[in-house]
Design a protein around this nucleic acid. Structure first.
Lengths: 254, 254
DNA sequence: CTCATTCGTGCACAAACATGCAAATTCGTG
DNA sequence: CACGAATTTGCATGTTTGTGCACGAATGAG
């Protein structure tokens, strides 16, 4: 095992899981804890992670405290992200939304996958810089700081010039009558435009979003072609959606 | 076995497996480790791979080391960043380039400053999410991973719709005859467009850039209205520039 | 407070390294 | 083919780097 391999593995694990424990790494890589600690110390010195007692956390210099939110991504979001990433085929053009679940998709893209990712989230763009083969198209506009995505007329105009295969949409609420809803007016507009630019719209529905309603309507459920939910969700809850012809993917815990 | 054959085999293996261990190659090719090491040393000198202890890895310019670059910003870049940030007045619209120096500007913006920042760098955008009062306009386009900035026709079109007060430009080289130069063709185009959209163009010239020349010309020095350099630079070095009517700000170490 | 982990440092040993040199190989030229 | 020059290779040398262990200090949980 090459030293630099080990370091890379540490950083990859950190990006995917959001935290690492020295003892676990030691067991997983068959190497002494001292060496792991040394690695963590030096990676921290390069600013690539932040040390904590017992292990390390991401420092993500480009992500500030938004990083904090990213790393408390629930297991559910990671599972959904992994399932979504697995749906992407070679050569496709996919749209990734802002939001923590979409970040999980980006982190789980297979490293050999040749595809194009369109996104209005600078966070996703920065995340994908490290991916060796994925091409990234960044949608510009006025930055809506709360969600860290570009919005506004310029964003929508640029989106209209794109034809994508699949849009993975994050929402605040998905419910039978109200349809897809979110917490910001501008963001709703952008999501609608993104959906219109994609052949398929797949909603990333972590369980707290199901049957929740937010103030601003993005689109009715007819705009949705698929949903990804975790396998814990009861099929009874999903019945209204599958009745509308929406393909439901139940993401399996590994 | 011919030398060039062996080297080709090394590079092929590297591309295929993503890493190379000197000892393995030695066994596989029935050749001493010394010779392998010599090969690796020379291939590294040609930039075809990156040496690590025990073997080699792909040179992959886009990989990970951008995050590292951000945090090893020299003192010089920090004081240039601080000086640039201090020049921005309330209500102004400023353009921030990609690059490590521009990140320093973003980090030194006074927290009460109400201004608009235009940028084609997702890194800068994410950085400024934490700023309470600055508005951010993100320029989209195809992501150029090496510099982590948006480039291409869509980027330039969007830039043309903006009228900014000041553009803080990062360069790879600034020199009297060649003018402003950088290492990527697309990036040069974008920088030229940004300069055209701003009333003033101020070049961030850390000392290693002064009198350096890179392959792609951004613009002649006539496009420049000001430069920021660190106070260590000799005024003799700057004479050719001030003679052209360029205002030179010498950033003071605190 | 007490106590079990976790950390950091000094140290010893092994692996990987650069360098100089001589033998072996390849190449060019007549 | 012959022969000298240039290159390539392997080995010996001393140096640097990575690893694990020991021990005392620091940290966090109960």
């Amino acid at each position: 095992m090459l030293t630099s391999h080990r370091r890379k593995h540490i950083l990859d694990t950190l990006r995917k899981t959001g935290a690492i424990i020295a003892k676990d790494l030691s067991a997983e890589l068959n190497i002494s804890e001292d060496t792991i600690r040394r690695d963590l110390r030096e990676l921290a010195a390069e600013g690539l992670l932040q040390r904590v007692h017992g292990g390390a956390m991401p420092s993500s210099p480009a992500m500030g405290n938004f990083a904090a939110r990213l790393n408390v991504a629930t297991d559910e979001k990671k599972i959904i992200g992994r399932a979504a990433a697995a749906m992407i085929r070679r050569g496709q053009v996919v749209i990734l939304d802002g939001g923590t679940t979409a970040v999980q998709i980006a982190r789980h893209l297979p490293s050999e996958l040749r595809a194009t990712v369109v996104t209005h989230s600078p966070t996703i763009a920065v995340e994908l810089v490290e991916h060796p083969t994925v091409e990234v198209i960044l949608i510009g506009g006025k930055l809506f700081k709360h969600s860290v995505v570009a919005v506004g007329a310029p964003a929508i105009e640029n989106i209209s010039k794109i034809r994508a295969d699949t849009y993975f949409m994050g929402v605040t609420g998905i419910q039978a009558e109200a349809g897809l809803t979110t917490g910001d007016f501008e963001e709703a507009h952008v999501k609608r435009a993104l959906s219109a630019s994609a052949a398929e719209t797949i909603v990333l529905a972590s369980s707290e979003k199901l049957n929740a309603v937010s103030p601003y309507v993005i689109a009715p459920l007819s705009a949705v072609t698929g949903m990804i939910v975790s396998d814990q969700v009861k099929s009874k809850t999903l019945a209204p959606f599958s009745r509308l012809g929406i393909t439901i993917t139940r993401a399996q815990r590994k």
